[in-house]
Each structure stands twice: as C-alpha cells, then as structure tokens.
Design a protein around this nucleic acid. Sequence first.
RNA 1: GGGCUCGUAGAUCAGUGGUAGAUCGCUUCCUUCGCAAGGAAGAGGCCCUGGGUUCAAAUCCCAGCGAGUCCA
Length: 925
Amino acid sequence: MSELADEYRLEYFEEEGFVRKECPECGNHFWTRDEDRVTCGEPPCEEYDFIDDPGFDQAYSLAEMREVFLSFFEDHDHERIDPYPVAANRWRDDVLLTQASIYDFQPLVTSGETPPPANPLTVSQPCIRMQDIDNVGKTGRHTMAFEMMAHHAFNTREETDEEYAYEGEVYWKSHTVELCDELLESMGADITEVTYIEDPWVGGGNAGPAIEVIYKGLELATLVFMCMEQDPDGEYELKDGNTYSFMDTYIVDTGYGLERWTWMSQGTATVYEAIYPEMIDFLKDNAGIDHTEAEAELVGRAARLSGNLDIDDVDDVEAARGDIADKLGVSVEELRDLVEPLEDIYAIADHCRTLAYMLGDGIVPSNVGTGYLARMVLRRTKRLCDTVGVDAPLDELVDMQAARLDYANRDTIRDIVRTEVEKYRETLERGGRRVESLAEEYAEKGEPIPTDELIELYDSHGIQPDMVEEIAAEAGADVDVPDDFYSLVAQRQETPDAGAETADDEADERFEDLPETEKLYYDDQQRTQFEAVVLDVFEREDGYDIVLDQTMFYPEGGGQPADTGILSTDDATVDVVDVQIQDGVICHRTDDRLGKGEFVNGQVDGGRRRQLMRHHTATHIVIHAAREHFGEHVRQAGAQKGVDSSRIDFSHYDRVTREDVKAIEARANEIVMENTAVTQEWPDRHDAEADHGFDLYQGGIPPGEQIRLIHVDEDVQACGGTHVARTGEIGTIKILNAERVQDGVERITFAAGAAAIEATQTKEDALYDAAATLDVSPEEVPETAARFFEEWKDRGKQIEELKEQLASARAGGGGSGEEVEIDETTAVIDRIDSDMDELRATATAIAEEGSVAVLGSGQGGAQFVVAVPDGSAVNAGDVVGELAAKVGGGGGGPPDFAQGGGPNVEDLDDALEDAPDVLRQVLDA
RNA sequence: GGGCUCGUAGAUCAGUGGUAGAUCGCUUCCUUCGCAAGGAAGAGGCCCUGGGUUCAAAUCCCAGCGAGUCCA
C-alpha cells in the first residue's frame, strides 16, 4: 500500500494546508485541515456525531438531495446524464445487477473503445447490492437499494500512441478532491472536520489510489482514481496480492451515497427514517406498532448506541444487543421485542424499493438470473410482512416506492407482484402439506425429522427450515436444524467436475495483419452478386478459409445463420459453405482453394438469403407485437433465425396462451400488410440511447461510436442483420408454437413467407388425414374425436364387465378345465388363450368358488395365473415359480394370487399337464 | 447455465415389480319442515408421452413434455 503513498500528495492538499496523519487506532493514513486531529474519524476509531445534530445547514429529502448534487456538478461544467437500468446484464455479461455508477461505463468506455455519453459527467445511479440483504434494517445504515451519485471524468495519457475514443485529460485527483470539498462547504459542512483517508482500491482487474471522505463519523463518499490494470509484470503489488501497472486511460470514479447525504442532513436515528419516512409511518401504522413515549425514547437511544458501535453486519448486531440492553438498563428480551418489529419494517421498505427498481427496469421474476434475485427479494419481503403483521397487499407497498421513483409501468409492476405473491402462496401451501404429512409420520415414529429431509424440503421445495419447525411443532414432531444447514445444501449442489474448458484456437499471425473486410451486404441488402479480390487463403481441416477485400456474404451473427453461395474466377468455382467474422475480418469457408490476388465473382444463394431476411425482419415484428400485447417488460432473451422457421425467446411473467398467440399473430400480420419501409441508420450511439433507451439492445450491445439501427414500424433495434426493404416482402407470418423455456422466459416459434405456407400446409395435412380416418369433415374432427374417445372408454368398461361375467360363468362349471383333487381341495387346471386381465378375473372367480385355480394362456408368450382360496395351504407363488420355469421364465406374487410366464409357448401344455404334480409337490414341501 | 423434486379420480395425495387405492368433492337414495350434518349405494383413471429392461412396469432405466425449487 505504501507504494502508492506518493499518489496522494495532491496539489490541492498542499494549497489548502492539509496535513497527512496516521490514525493511532487503525493505522490508516489520512489528510485533514485540523492539525490537532488524532484519529481518522471513521468508526470504530470514532463515533457518529450527527444523530440529532445534522451536519448540513438544512434537511433535505432524497429527491431534493439528488437535485442539489446533480445541479452542483452541472454548475461545475459536468453534463447530467440519465441513470442506467439496475439490470446490468443488459449491457455486460459479467454481472447481474448494477452495483456502482462506474458499472455504466464498463467495459467499453473504461477500456477506451467507446466514448462516454459526456465528459465529464454526473449521474445518480440506482444500485442494488444483494450481499447486504441480511444487514438491511438491522445495522441502521445498510440498504440493499441505493443511489450512487457520482461524477466521472475519462482521461487518456498524452504520451500514448494508441487510439482511444476520448483524448487528453479532463481533470484528475486534485480537482476531484477540490470539488468534493467545495460541495461539502456549500452544504454548510464544517470542512475542518472532514478527513480524507488513503484507501487504495482494487477490483475487477483494475486498481488505483482512492480516498474515503469521512464527516462526523459517516463515510459520505469514496473518490476512486482508476488508473492501473492487473499485469503480471507490473511493478506495484496491491492488497489482493496481484501486481499492477499503469494504463493509458485513467478515470475519475466517485461515489456519493445519496441516502447517506440525506441522512446526514436530517440526523435521524437511522438512515431509513431519513429516506422514506412516509413509508415507514405507513408500515408502522399498518402493523399496529404504536410506541409509548417512553418506548419511543428507548428505541431512539438504542439506535444511537448501535450506530456508534462497530457494526458491519447482522452478526455484530446480535452480539451487541446485550451490551446495548445493559447500557439502557433493560433486559435483552425487552429490547428485542421492541426493536425487532422496527427492523423488519425498515427492511420491508428497503426491499420494496429494491423491487420497484428491479421490476420498474423490466426484470421479470424467474428461476434464473436477475429474475431469480427479484423472486428471492419478493419472497423475503412477503415473509417479513407476515412476520411483523403488515397486511397491506405487497403490490401496493411496491407501488408506493415505484410511485416515488416515478416509474411509468406501475400497472405491470403491480401485476407482476400479484402473480408472484400468488405463486409463492401456492408454493407455501404445497410445502405446508408436505411438511405436515412428514411431521405426522415422524411424530408417530417418535423420531425427529432427519436433516436430509430438511435439506430436500428446502432445496427441492423451497421451504425454509424455520417454517418446517413451526409446522412440525403443531404435529408434535421435533426438528433438529444443524448449524451448517446452508453449507449442507451447498454440498448437495456440488457436481462432479464441470470438465475442462475448450482451448482457444491459437492466434494466426497472418490473420491478424489482414484489414477489416468491407461489408457490402449493408449497402444494398437486396443484391446477391459482387466482385472482389482474394487477399489470403488459409488451409483448414475440412476446407479453406478465403478472405476477400469486400464481400456480400453475411457472416453468422445476431442469431442469423451465414449465407452460402459460390465464388468463381475465370477458371474455377468454389462453394461457400459457411461464413464467419473475427475482428472485422470475414472468412469464407470453401470446399476448394483459390489463388491469392485473384479476382473473383461472388454469388450469394439468393433464395436462402431472402428467406433469412424475411425471418430476421419478422423476428423484429413478432417481438414488437408481443411487446404491444403484453407490455414493456417483454424483452428479447435470445433468438435464432432459420430458413424454415425461426424462434424468439422473450421475458414474460405468465404463460403465453392460445389467445395471446392469435393476438400477436394478427398484429404481426397487420404490420406485414401495411407494407411499411424497413430502414437502417448509423447514428452516434449516445444519441441513439438518448432517443430510444436501452431497449435498443435486445440482441446484445455492439461496440463502437456509431451503431446500426433498424426501424420496422415503430420498432427500433440495434441490429447487425440483413432485412427486407418493406414489410410486405415477408408475405405472411405464422406462429407455429409457444412454449416456456424457463420460468419467466417464453419461446415463440414462427415461420415467414413460403415457410409459413409450408408449415400451415403440413399442419392442415395432419388435420385432413385425421378427418379422413374418422370419415368426417375437418371441422367435425374435434367433436368426433371426443365422441370416439368417450365411446372407446365405454367399451373398455363394457369389456371388463363382460370378462368378469365370463370368468364367473367359467368358475361356475361352464369351463372346460380339468378338475383334480389335491389334498382336501379341488384344483381347476385350464388353458384359456386370452389376455392377463381375463386370466386373472377367471382365477379370482374360481378361487371364490373355493377351488385352487391354475390357468395358462398362450397369448403373448406363455402366461400363468394361480389363485388360491382362503384357508388353502397351497402357496400360489411357489406353484407359478415351478410352472414358469418350465416355459423358460419366472414369476411370483403373494401366496394367494400369483402370476408368471415365459417365452416358450410350445411347452405350455406340458407344463399344465404337470400342474397336479407341482401342486402336490408344493404342498408336501 | 447447473443441481434436485414431482406428474396416479374433479381436488389433495398414498401406492418401490405381481388384481389401481384413500380423503374431500360429485350423483342417487334414506333420515329432516328445511338447513348443517349423518347413514347407504354409485359414478368417476390411456397411472403425462415415447422408447428400453422384464414372464410381468403406475413402480426400474433413458429421452421428451409439463410443473416446482435451490444455486451461480
């Protein structure tokens, strides 16, 4: 750490007369204006000093504070930008949720590939940190949802030769601290009390010096100066044990906690009361929490005390509870009864805000990804409501936060919450029944419910151990929840190795030197013929990769398969079977080679290409129609175009019904019939984002300063695929199927153009065939099929009845069977060539008459049934075993009724002849 | 993306290779002025689909479809 010490010697500190000190408590170095200052000022070295004594001139609400911050930086030459969604996986695949403002600009802007929307800029970015979920409500200062107010500046070093999307230095460390100081002063803070602690930052492969800003015991901001990257040869070893070196880009990354600034301005006991007071009041009222003045005073003192303690997570809170109770002169139980409901209410308010951000940004609850996180938060919130006795519907609570945050899709949010709460209720009901029967079972045995049952209940059925305890107690069963329960669950999840990762193809040096191929397929998407020069040819295992200077062949990408076709010179023609793009260079996989430097004539398979274009444009239309039909939360989650059919996966919180399909199909074909123009444009990416928002990037985020937009009707998407010129060229769109691929993700398969006609005809053929078989018109098929099915069932019942009648008739002496006296009883031995059902019925009937039945059948192999009347000493299982052995098989069953058989039908009669002997033998044994 | 659990009567679920069951609901009858309830009888099952193993599969194995759940 000390290696970076020089990085903190800022001009600003020098000009303002700051001194650098070392905190005697924690050993950290910090900068202060106060020469007499001893500690760094951050708990636990020092205590909160702003509760009931706000550190700013006036109290601000959350919204007011946000505005003060953003306009301060606007006044200091920053451009204000709109916040990004909390679902960070919309633009990057390494994280699920936005956890800091810098996430907005990773990885494309921080690496210098793409320019920032403005430079410098300021933003108040909603963030969600799931890792704080257990602390919320308990520590008094943790929230899962928060807004990180920030200002960022993106700089590149003067001396670099590389090209970056931004150039030169906007400002760096000194000015950043100066701005922070000025902001604090403008709020009325006593800046001699502010300390700047040196705290190098490392994360996500980047690093740099950073400064924590502490005021009155509260960390108000972190100023990060990202300027290093992980480098095995780097000269700086930082706290994560890796070595780092300086980058060409260096970025000011600040984070000012909106909630904390608001709290500082109000000095309430906890942060929650400062940021959503009206919601806290509502929840308290709804849960019937009504404190006497003495109680309220006690709660306030407890909050202040816990604020002053070294509390980083919920375990500390539990540990500290006893100390706090002592200091307040009450029992731990008394304190807990008073404080716990409040903690739950704080958590509910925070969780509802989290849900409002998530659902408001279009996250759909699911069993995967961000959807799973949303579901987890929702269920947890519902449990908290039930525990503390809040009976207001959850959708109303989430809506209160959504209204505060000004979301436009509040109806959808409420709908999603209602659907999810209902699903959860069903899960609980199902689980409850399961636990009840399990509890009764073990209560009867007098055993506690074993751990592996608990693990399965949780892992497979989503039932928390504490819920099992509750229900089991009612049934009188014990439950022993082991301390390491969750690690046992994790163990069960472990899989026996995922297998080695596939090794990357080694980089081809000749390949890297090639220029980017000129893409003719964007100039005129209708053309299929072109001329080009062969730049290079690579021999591959199963053919050749030919690189041209320009091409009309579309490489596989964005869910659109590659074009096929031919390349020909004066004396040779090769087939193009696949086309791939890598770093802008397009490779044509061919069956034979062409000479380097030759002129070629390229011809794309036009029929195939046109069909792919129809399907690609149709994909945009279908998703657009689905969005119109279901709402804005519908978002592409993957797509694959083909020649015969295409499919599109999209987020939606309910099943797609037949009615939905019809409506979407109708709307999609309306757009086709309107025959509107499909247009492309290449706007600046930030203009495009400003105009259309992040919904542009349904198929992924492309790099670069300009992006390609495709307009179809009112739909706009960033897309690299090829499209028809007018929607009418699609001909028709036929939805073939709708299915659920994951919870919260639906798949629609459809066909366009000729493929739609073919698909429809195939389906009609099936209907016509069925109609012909039933000898009715297609319209009558459903009714007739239903009638036939009913009749078929009736006949089954009739046959069964007749078999039973036949059986009792046979038993009554109508059969042809041989009767033999064995011991005291009569045995009927007979061969009836019928199925097992009839054999069984007959045997049962004979046994009811008081005789032993030994029946054989040659149908479907040699089969036996032996039935024995009550009180007979014959063991039917043994008899069948012996007989079946004679036909090369086996058999068995209970002593009074057994079945068996074997493959050798020709030995059946012999076996039956031996039956009397077998019976006697079995009796004697 | 991975793991796990479950698909049996209208509903909820038993049934671990050998004749498909229970409870509730439903229908009819009896008791009652009527209702709640009680008594009696009865109807209601391609045991999710398709393969495989076996003399024999609701049951065991594989695949698919459907539902649920945990984790990243």
